[in-house]
Amino acid sequence: MILIKNGTVLTMAGRVIENGCVLVEDSKIKYVGEEKDFEGVSEIIDAEGGYIMPGMIDAHCHLGLWEDGVGFEGADGNEATDPITPHLRAIDGINPMDRTFKEAYENGITCVCTGPGSANVIAGSFAVIKTYGKRIDNMIIKNPAAIKVAFGENPKSTYHEKHEMPTTRMGIAALLRETLYKAQEYMNKKENAEEDDDKPDFDMKYESLIPVLKREIPLKVHAHRADDMFTAIRIAKEFNLDLTLDHCTEGHLIADELKEEGYPLIVGPSLSERSKVELRELTFETAGILSKKGIDIAIMTDHGVIPIQYLPLCAALAVKHGMDEMEALKAITINPAKILKIDDRVGSLEVGKDADIVVLDKFPLDVMAKTKYVLIDGKVVFRR
């Protein structure tokens, strides 16, 4: 057993415990509370008056799919040869040996939702993984976690260059609808077939969309502009789908509407330039404006747009621009865990959850804060 003591425990479950401790047994949290002694402890970690918190979570990134400083050989995030590729799986492209995984966990990011980019209308499946390990199969928390779809500039520009559909927002919506209709028809025929001969021929693309149609996983929607978000919502309602709205760059302009709709929001990357037209409203105020409407948002890096280790910096800058401090901390811990539907395992320090724990010398959103220890699944993976 490992005892982490002598720190302020930010449980992210509604409690802040001064001079608290966390007890870890095997891979799980066994105790969280006021400091006390335990028998059978094999290692004591002294927080030295610092902070103890759950591992941070990035709800949208491309970690491991664009390898650091490699170029084309390490670029495995966009299969930009067909606008409809729901059958692609992130786990087949992620390289856990890329050094950015080490930069992630050494800076307290212990879990991410990572997957393909936004060149295609339907890009493939995302996976939720831990950031420590050598083999992706042993790092998975949830796979598939979502099917990525993209609206706006990225698929437009990708296929405009190829002189192929889609080159308009109408084309993007039409291709998505057409594919969902065909997948729905495929699923119904398959389920209603009384004999094997009546079943449709196997189609891997449509098979990949069945969990979406059954609301087992959401569509993960790349949308910056307000009109693209509304189109995504319109289509989701047509097919009775779950979705998350990722990026939400113009979310602050339609905050009341987004509050009313109630879909999960993942905001960012805000620490970047306005590199394209649909980013003209980019501001760090978005997260705070949406949060103050009572929406539980997540903040993301979109790594490698923003290096993964700057996730807490993004939250800190949201605070600088008006977001409540604890709400910003929730946006990189328990909120993404809830949005990704993995909060039974991670996102807060509670008994029975995975022992993904970070010890820091200062408050986590202090830009000078340094991680002293990082545990993933109860194992000390980093000590300064």
Results as ranks from 00 to 15, higher is better:
residue 1 M to Q: 12
residue 3 L to R: 08
residue 12 M to G: 08
residue 12 M to I: 13
residue 13 A to G: 14
residue 22 V to H: 03
residue 25 E to Q: 12
residue 30 K to Q: 13
residue 36 K to G: 09
residue 38 F to S: 10
residue 40 G to F: 12
residue 44 I to R: 15
residue 56 M to A: 04
residue 59 A to I: 02
residue 60 H to P: 10
residue 61 C to Q: 01
residue 65 L to Q: 01
residue 76 D to H: 06
residue 78 N to W: 01
residue 83 P to L: 08
residue 88 L to Q: 11
residue 89 R to Q: 13
residue 89 R to V: 10
residue 92 D to W: 12
residue 92 D to A: 13
residue 95 N to Y: 09
residue 104 A to S: 10
residue 104 A to T: 06
residue 105 Y to K: 06
residue 105 Y to M: 07
residue 108 G to H: 02
residue 109 I to M: 04
residue 109 I to E: 00
residue 110 T to I: 09
residue 112 V to N: 00
residue 118 S to D: 12
residue 121 V to G: 02
residue 126 F to V: 00
residue 126 F to N: 03
residue 129 I to E: 00
residue 131 T to H: 04
residue 134 K to C: 06
residue 140 I to T: 02
residue 143 N to V: 08
residue 147 I to A: 01
residue 148 K to G: 04
residue 149 V to N: 00
residue 159 Y to M: 05
residue 160 H to C: 12
residue 165 M to D: 13
residue 167 T to A: 14
residue 170 M to Q: 12
residue 173 A to V: 11
residue 173 A to I: 08
residue 173 A to L: 07
residue 173 A to C: 09
residue 177 R to W: 06
residue 178 E to D: 14
residue 179 T to C: 06
residue 180 L to A: 05
residue 186 Y to C: 05
residue 186 Y to R: 02
residue 193 A to M: 13
residue 193 A to C: 12
residue 194 E to H: 15
residue 201 D to Y: 15
residue 202 F to R: 15
residue 203 D to L: 07
residue 207 E to F: 07
residue 212 V to T: 02
residue 218 P to R: 05
residue 226 A to Y: 07
residue 234 R to V: 07
residue 237 K to A: 12
residue 237 K to Y: 12
residue 238 E to G: 07
residue 240 N to M: 08
residue 244 T to V: 14
residue 250 E to P: 08
residue 250 E to G: 08
residue 251 G to L: 05
residue 255 A to R: 11
residue 255 A to K: 13
residue 257 E to W: 09
residue 261 E to K: 15
residue 263 Y to S: 09
residue 267 V to I: 15
residue 267 V to Y: 02
residue 268 G to I: 03
residue 278 E to M: 06
residue 282 L to C: 07
residue 290 L to F: 06
residue 297 I to N: 00
residue 299 I to G: 02
residue 299 I to P: 01
residue 302 D to K: 01
residue 304 G to C: 14
residue 307 P to V: 11
residue 308 I to N: 00
residue 312 P to S: 08
residue 315 A to R: 01
residue 315 A to H: 03
residue 320 K to F: 04
residue 322 G to A: 09
residue 323 M to Q: 13
residue 326 M to P: 03
residue 328 A to M: 08
residue 331 A to Q: 02
residue 331 A to W: 02
residue 333 T to K: 10
residue 338 K to R: 15
residue 340 L to W: 03
residue 346 V to R: 00
residue 349 L to M: 07
residue 352 G to A: 05
residue 356 D to C: 09
residue 360 L to A: 13
residue 360 L to M: 15
residue 365 L to H: 08
residue 368 M to N: 15
residue 370 K to Q: 14
residue 373 Y to I: 07
residue 375 L to E: 00
residue 376 I to K: 07
residue 376 I to N: 03
residue 378 G to P: 05
residue 378 G to V: 08
